[in-house]
Simulated scan of single mutants.
Amino acid sequence: MTFQPLVPFSGAAGYAFLERTRERQLETFQQSASVQRNVDAFRDRIAGITSAEALVKDYQLLQVTLGAFGLDEDINNKFLIQKVLSSNTADPEALTSRLADKRYETMAKAFGFGDVLGPRVGLPGFADRIVEAYTTRQFEIAVGEQDQTMRLAMGLERELGQIIDKGASPDATWFNVMANKPLRQVFETALGLPQSFGALDLDRQLEGFRAKAQSAFGVSEIADFADPERQEELRRLFLVRAQVANGLSGPATPASTALTLLTNGSQGF
């Protein structure tokens, strides 16, 4: 039987419960049969994989690889994944450099099949790092099947950290957030942006994100969200707005009252 994470509440209360029980629930999830089979296969076979082509031909290894980087939906797009994993990530003209979604570049760098020094799959600790990333993300997916909002909230720190750590220019960092579907959804929801916002010109979107962030958090750059307190403000506002949008706001609370005032006073795009 597949383990299903327990998510008894929505909103901030649900997230607080998950934080308290995450370690125990994750441990139980990792012991489920389907996860254990993939993990065991990866540990047993990955060191012997010498090319991107060999990796994409092994369905179990490909599942773990894509799952570790949040790219599960690409499981049937083997041609693209082979091209990505074969890329020389030091080449500014490589495919990974041209893709807006930088998760592909991160994956290619981790495996190194196309890099000068060759694949890293046999290095000490490699399998452990990929397996940890895989099981963590698969647990978040399982949580998302109960409550997608919780999944996005759980991955916020990691997704933001990976983009901020790249040290790109302020504009490029915002564009990387905009290209990252989970992060974009968090920011759009937290900032109260309408669905039509994504149809605007990219430069106009950039202006809009900055203006809304400045209004809501007093900062306009993604690097400012490296501050744990400000990141928590972002998560909290996302959870409250998502709860209201889903019609689960329940009785009035200080948070929901503040959100109503904020919404009534904001200007739409």
Results as ranks from 00 to 15, higher is better:
T2N: 11
P5I: 04
P8G: 06
F9R: 02
S10L: 04
S10I: 07
S10G: 12
G14H: 07
G14Q: 09
G14T: 04
Y15D: 12
Y15G: 04
A16R: 13
A16N: 12
F17C: 02
R22L: 09
R24W: 13
E27K: 08
T28K: 08
T28N: 04
F29D: 05
S34R: 06
S34V: 12
S34Y: 11
Q36N: 09
N38K: 11
N38S: 11
V39N: 03
D40Q: 15
A41C: 12
F42W: 03
R43F: 11
D44N: 08
A47Q: 01
G48R: 07
I49R: 01
S51W: 02
E53K: 13
A54D: 13
A54G: 12
D58L: 03
Y59C: 02
L61N: 02
Q63L: 14
G67P: 00
F69A: 03
F69R: 13
L71V: 00
D72A: 15
N77F: 05
Q82V: 01
Q82T: 06
V84R: 01
S86N: 06
S87Y: 02
A90V: 03
A90P: 00
D91N: 15
P92D: 06
P92H: 02
T96G: 00
T96H: 03
T96W: 07
T96M: 02
A100V: 00
A100S: 14
R103Y: 10
Y104K: 08
Y104A: 12
Y104L: 09
A108W: 00
K109Q: 15
G112R: 13
G112F: 01
G112S: 11
F113I: 06
V116Y: 10
V116H: 09
V121Q: 04
L123N: 06
F126C: 01
R129L: 09
I130M: 14
V131Y: 00
Y134E: 02
T135L: 09
T136S: 15
R137I: 04
R137K: 13
Q138F: 05
Q138N: 08
F139Q: 05
E140G: 00
A142K: 08
V143H: 03
V143Q: 06
G144E: 01
G144F: 15
G144P: 13
E145P: 07
T149K: 02
R151I: 11
L152G: 04
G155W: 03
R158V: 10
G161K: 05
Q162K: 10
I164M: 09
D165T: 08
K166Q: 14
A168K: 13
T173H: 02
N176D: 15
A179F: 08
A179C: 12
N180F: 01
R184I: 06
R184M: 10
F187A: 10
G192E: 11
L193C: 00
Q195R: 09
Q195M: 01
G198F: 05
G198K: 09
Q205R: 15
L206Q: 04
G208E: 12
F209E: 12
A211L: 14
K212L: 11
S215P: 01
F217D: 05
F217I: 06
A223K: 15
D224I: 05
F225L: 07
A226N: 14
E229Q: 09
Q231K: 14
E232V: 07
F238G: 06
F238Y: 02
A242P: 00
V244T: 12
A245I: 09
S249P: 00
P251Y: 09
S256W: 04
A258R: 06
L259E: 14
L262Q: 14
L262S: 10
N264W: 06
F269W: 08
